[in-house]
Design a protein around this nucleic acid. Structure first.
Length: 958
RNA sequence: GGGCAAGUGGCGGAAUUGGUAUACGCGCUAGUCUUAGGAACUAGUUCCGAAAGGAUUGAGGGUUCGAGUCCCUCCUUGCCCACCA
């Protein structure tokens, strides 16, 4: 017998597959388009993360091929972009050269791993025949008005010396190199992805086979918010004339206004000031009217210089400066309110200005408290008595009342009223008379109801509540505005309470923890929250108060009405337009020409591609100009419109351009007229399963959906959503749980593993590590288990004397394994596929087995470990395991003659019974009761009840 | 601060609809063989206990004949978003 020699058999089969083009996708049969995120040709080659998705994709591809599907599993090279360019710079070579070399290396790696890739469809984003179409597609965006040029403050990576899209900034750092991102004013090309925000969001609903997590992350990134935009008129303070407060009603109105965005237009009556972001144009527009403009500018500048992370690190302590000399008119109250600049308002979101409602927004509340601004409650939480709700036909009456939380002078107790007329125990409670001060009323009520006369007010709850109920004895609806006052007695001096009060209730001291048991105050939850957590603004829904004609209405109902009355309803998105130009060399040139006469002119289709020129010096300039700008003979061209002198656009596209449509190219990789006919696209789209990383959720995955939906709208692509199913994989971490990184020196090199153990072992162990979507720890030692398993299989098949018939256990185990493996592959539970195969071998290794059963087992093994499976299959006289039909299982083979039944007493397993499958329930129960262990536990008692679960257990309840 | 996911042996991890928790693998222990090797094979291995037995799925409570699984409260970890109006 030959020893298991993975190297030898793996090379044999790899060259067999290659020479015979075994994995080229055909044109007939039901298709499966299996996609993996194509690699960028890094100098380090493939990493363990790649192996995780590529192996899973290969497993699934091989499985579906055996199932009879026409499978396409293609690969290509995402070869433009920063990493490739940085690598070339580091090695002092041309990116084209290093990229080609790196590709060669990765191609070899993929072969060595035995992936069933259709190499006839290999693509490369840096191939002019490929990027011709990337450029052509860009022009479709341009022609549709979705690509535009604009100067603005953008994210800038000082290390990579290029602008970045919002999606490329991860926690304030460059997605590629981890450098802190700065802001820089630059001319940039943008793609109007915001125009597609709604479609990108709505499309998520058509993707039931995407993980919830991925969909939510994209939805959060798009960040849709419904609200209103409201204009606030800006007025100027009159010249200072004496001491009196300025009369803004006589101030000359100008036509300047500030547009704010709010999701709570219902709180507009409580908007007591306005805040603009440091970047807001109002500051410079009214520079000569703002009295303290120097101070304002200084503040705005500091705020702009601060990085986002710094702001957060500062503990969110609110800062700001009032714009003195100007005021804004609240369109609801018509009052003039102060205008502030503060960095808690962000320039990039909404309109860069807010109406501040400190009573109902925590940030505004904090700010108002710090700067002594007015806090005006306009929403009261509404509590409706569930037993006696207000009646439609009854009259409404209003009443102001209070609850007093009265603390004991020395002990941790509060005073309650125990009612004699009702089964209630309440706070000290009572009405407030017209014009009476709440705090005075509280003291008065405490005295009248309890006789205690010396007390001090601790605090007043910052908002009132609205309780609504039907007062049966008066036949009216009561709408009660409830205040809460916390007081503390200074001593226990007490006077006699009036007889009238005495008949109603008596005061009782209770432990303050028992406050939560007081009844029947429906406001209790809010009160307890206040006592426990202190003063907070009320940000929930409720009933409007102090809101003019809208008072007494519910916030929910009046929200749209108020939005329309004071402004207009508006939907905002957090998604920003995609900064699409890079000031780097190694990318697709943007195919536009700047002509003095005709402006921006697209390069005509027949002149595409605009080839990236070869240059000696391609390093980034850092000036905001692309290195291409220095190549006069390339930059200077003629205008396609007028033939006059013109200049080429010198920025290049981001790395995400080529990858935004590469899956389309796979369907017809050599087509010179890619989008003229959609036959191949129709044949293959959508992608059936897309394997990839979680990190691309708001990058490549979002971008390529955007491109595809757009192309679908243009009639160029047959489906709107490109990927039916998305299967993300978890990260592979080092043994200690840290991320693998070159700097830590804990990176595992796949080549070494393959050399040491063989591709089959590496593939299988990758899958065995843990659930595909979870992060898993790489274990140097663990791989030996899989290696041993394959070696055992090798020895087993090689030394087996095959029998004429399977022993019963063998056929039962085989069918069980076929079932489990099939189900697990379909459910992407690859780790248990491996353990099921191991279990099978453990169960049958000593039993007589037929050659056919052994071959069926090898077929199950084949998607994971194709080389050894192919080799052994051949040794057993089989051919072309790659296309042999996937084994089927027979339900009737799964059942055995006997089953094991657990015997429980009171839910605890006490014994086991082996019974024949045709035993009746009665027989089994009798046997169970007869069990010695059961009898010992019953000790003569008769069971109360016996629960029988078919094929599983008997539970005897005593 | 918000959202999502997850907590099971020494470790990675299994457990259909609630129905015998700890499959499979690593590691560890003992043994066999031997060119005493970090190989292979065999047996054992959740914890406590000599055993009988008892305990056990982050903690606490609940529903149920029966809970890793369902419900409530809390703790911890990971990921995403984050002064987003």
């Amino acid at each position: 017998m030959q020893k298991y020699n993975p190297k030898k058999i793996e090379e044999k089969w790899q060259s067999y597959w290659q020479t015979n083009n075994v994995f080229e996708a055909g044109d007939s049969g039901e298709k499966k388009f299996i996609l993996v995120e194509f690699p960028f040709p890094s100098g380090d080659g493939l990493h363990m993360g790649h192996l995780r998705s590529y192996t899973a994709a290969d497993l699934v591809s091989r499985y579906y091929r055996m199932k009879g599907f026409n499978v396409m599993y293609p690969i290509g090279w995402d070869a433009f972009g920063l990493p490739a360019e940085n690598y070339a710079i580091k090695h002092g070579k041309q990116p084209a050269e290093t990229t080609a070399k790196n590709i060669e290396n990765i191609r070899k790696q993929l072969h060595r791993l035995g992936y069933s890739i259709d190499w006839s469809r290999e693509i490369n984003t840096t191939d002019p025949n490929y990027y011709k179409w990337t450029q052509w597609l860009f022009l479709q965006f341009y022609k549709a008005g979705l690509a535009y040029e604009s100067t603005g403050l953008i994210n800038w990576c000082p290390k990579d010396k290029t602008g970045l899209a919002n999606e490329e900034v991860i926690g304030g750092h460059c997605e590629r190199c981890g450098t802190k991102v700065e802001k820089k004013e630059l001319r940039q090309w943008y793609l109007k992805i915001t125009e597609y925000a709604e479609k990108l969001l709505a499309g998520l609903n058509d993707l039931p086979e995407w993980p919830e997590r991925v969909r939510t992350e994209q939805a959060n990134w798009i960040g849709k918010k419904e609200g209103a935009e409201i204009d606030f008129q800006v007025v100027l303070s009159p010249p200072k004339a004496g001491e009196g407060s300025p009369d803004f009603s006589t101030t000359p109105q100008n036509d300047i206004s500030v547009k704010v965005f709010t999701t709570r237009p219902d709180t507009i009556f409580g908007a007591t000031y306005l805040v603009v972001a440091p970047e807001h144009s109002l500051i410079e527009t009214l520079a000569d009217k703002i009295e303290n403009i120097d101070e304002v500018r200084a503040y705005a500048q500091t705020a702009k210089d601060k990085e986002e992370l710094e702001r957060i690190a500062e503990g969110k302590e609110k800062t700001g400066v009032e714009l003195k000399g100007i005021r804004a008119i609240n369109p609801a109250t018509k009052e003039d309110i102060p205008v502030w600049v503060a960095d808690y308002v962000l320039g990039g979101y909404g309109t860069g200005a807010i109406m501040a409602v400190p009573a109902h927004d925590e940030r505004d509340n904090e700010f108002a408290k710090k700067f002594g601004l007015e806090i005006r409650q306009v929403v009261a939480p509404r509590v409706v008595d569930p037993v006696n709700p207000p009646r439609e036909d009854a009259k409404n009456t209003d009443r102001n009342m209070l609850h007093a939380i009265v603390m004991h002078p020395t002990e941790d107790k509060i005073l309650s009223l125990k009612w004699k007329t009702h089964p209630w125990q309440t706070f000290i409670t009572g009405g407030i008379e017209d014009g009476e001060d709440v705090l005075e009323a509280a003291k008065r009520e405490v005295f009248e109801e309890t006789g205690y006369k010396n007390m001090e007010v601790i605090k007043l709850m910052p908002y009132i509540m609205r309780a609504e109920f039907y007062a049966a004895h008066k036949e009216v609806n009561r709408k009660v505005n409830a205040n809460v006052v916390m007081l503390k007695l200074t001593d226990l001096a007490q006077e006699v309470v009036s007889a009238e009060e005495q008949e109603q209730f008596e005061p009782v001291w209770i432990d303050s923890q028992d406050m939560k048991n007081l009844s029947p105050v429906s406001e209790l939850a809010y009160i307890l929250d206040w006592v426990e957590n202190g003063d907070k603004s009320y940000t929930g829904e409720g009933v409007l108060i102090n809101s003019g004609e809208f008072s007494d209405q519910l916030t929910m109902d009046s929200l749209p009405k108020m939005a329309e009355k004071f402004g207009k309803q508006k939907t905002t998105y957090k998604l920003r337009d995609w900064v699409f130009s890079r000031q780097r060399y190694w990318g697709e040139p943007i195919p536009l020409i700047h002509c003095e006469k005709d402006g921006v002119v697209p390069v005509p289709d027949d002149q595409l591609p605009v080839v990236l020129p070869e240059v000696k010096n391609y390093e980034p300039t850092g000036t905001g100009e692309s290195p291409l700008a220095a190549i006069d003979e390339w930059v200077n061209t003629t205008c396609p419109e007028c033939g006059g002198p013109a200049k080429r656009e010198t920025n290049t596209m981001p790395q995400w351009a080529g990858s935004s449509w590469y899956f389309l190219r796979y369907t017809d990789p050599n087509n010179e007229q890619q989008f003229a006919s959609s036959e191949k696209l129709k044949q293959w789209l959508p992608v059936d399963i897309y394997f990839g990383g979680m990190e691309h959720t708001t990058l490549h995955l979002l971008y390529s959906r955007f491109w595809n939906i757009f192309l679908h709208d243009q009639g160029l692509v047959p489906v709107s959503e490109p990927y039916t199913k998305r299967v993300p994989h978890g990260m592979i971490l080092a043994e200690d749980g840290s991320k693998m990184s070159k700097s830590k020196g804990n990176v595992i090199n796949p080549d070494d593993l393959v050399k040491q153990h063989g591709a089959d072992t590496v593939r299988m162990y990758e899958m065995f590590l843990g659930p595909h979507e979870d992060s898993v720890l790489w274990s140097e030692k663990g791989i030996i288990g899989v290696a041993r398993f394959l070696e055992r299989i090798w020895n087993w098949i090689n030394t087996a004397e095959f029998s004429e018939h399977d022993e019963e256990t063998v056929s039962r185990e085989l069918h069980k394994t076929i079932k489990k493996v099939t189900e697990d592959i379909e459910a992407y539970r690859f780790n248990t596929v491996v353990s099921n195969l191991m279990s099978f071998h453990n169960a049958v290794k000593d039993s007589p087995i037929t050659k056919d059963s052994a071959k069926a087992f090898l077929q199950l093994l084949h998607p994971l470990a194709p080389h050894i499976a192919s080799e052994l299959y051949e040794q057993l006289g089989g051919e072309n395991i790659d296309i042999q039909p996937w084994p089927k299982y027979d339900e009737s083979m799964l059942v055995s003659d006997t089953i094991t039944i657990a015997v429980q007493v009171n839910g605890k397993v006490r014994d086991e019974l082996i019974v024949s499958t045709d035993s009746t329930q009665e027989e089994i129960e009798t046997k169970a009761l007869a069990s010695e262990k059961v009898q010992a536990l019953l000790s003569g008692q008769s069971p109360k009840r016996i629960i029988y679960v078919e094929n599983r257990l008997v539970n005897i309840v005593v």
